[in-house]
């Protein structure tokens, strides 16, 4: 399944990566995708530490959300300061 992954803000800087196009073969949930990505290296563990938001096609979603062919999945840190 071809998907398009984008990383934003601090996360993009930490991963040194803005954008991946990816033929994803795993289970079609955000949770499973997070785990697949987290295996890329230490910095990538940020995706499973519970403090990264996910959005499918610009809509925020929970970890059990289902990914479909051609989706854009985005990850970014929550903005909590003030």
């Amino acid at each position: 399944m071809q998907i398009n992954i984008r990383f934003f803000a601090l996360l993009r800087e930490q991963l040194g990566c803005e954008h991946i196009e990816f033929d994803y073969q795993g289970e079609r949930t955000i949770a499973a995708l997070r785990h697949t990505l987290a295996a890329h290296g230490d910095a990538w563990l940020a995706l499973i530490n519970g403090n990264t938001l996910a959005a499918i096609n610009h809509t925020l979603c929970q970890d059990h959300a289902i990914i479909s062919e051609g989706d854009e999945v985005a990850f970014f840190p929550p903005v909590t300061g003030g």
Binding site: G50, N51, A54, L60, Q62, T80, G82
Partner: peptide, 23 residues
């Protein structure tokens, strides 16, 4: 509906900094 999407780790400006014009 928003805060249930992420964990409890607080991150404030003191540890993380903030660039002035953002505020």
């Amino acid at each position: 509906c928003y805060s249930q999407l992420f964990g409890d780790t607080e991150s404030g400006c003191a540890e993380n900094g903030v660039l002035t014009p953002l505020v």
